[in-house]
């Protein structure tokens, strides 16, 4: 199973979920989902609830919301973690 990233805009929390079911269980109205590659996912309900690639929003990637992340729950891949830390240092330096 690939990781799914769940970003909660109101709290600035980025949660690393181990699979889709865990990500869906953590849904909140302000939740945004991204797959392991950082592509946006769209939550759909038709009989059952599932996530699918959000093609019409494909330019909105995980990297673009990193600057809005205040807390991380779970373990980010090293490259993403470095990018987040660099953004935080940039914000702190402003």
């Amino acid at each position: 199973m690939s990781a799914v990233y769940l970003f909660l805009a109101d709290s600035g929390l980025l949660r690393v979920c181990t699979d889709v079911q865990q990500a869906l269980a953590a849904w909140q109205p302000d939740a945004l989902y991204f797959d392991a590659e950082g592509e946006p996912l769209r939550r759909e309900s038709s009989g059952k609830t599932f996530l699918r690639l959000w093609a019409s929003c494909s330019s909105c990637r995980l990297e673009q919301v990193l600057g809005m992340v205040d807390m991380i729950e779970g373990e980010l891949p090293p490259a993403l973690m470095q990018a987040w830390q660099a953004l935080r240092e940039g914000r702190a330096g402003v």
């Binding site: 302000d30 673009q64 919301v65 600057g67």
Partner: peptide, 9 residues
């Protein structure tokens, strides 16, 4: 907007 207006940058 980002992500269909869910976020504003």
């Amino acid at each position: 907007p980002l992500c269909a207006g869910a976020l504003i940058e």
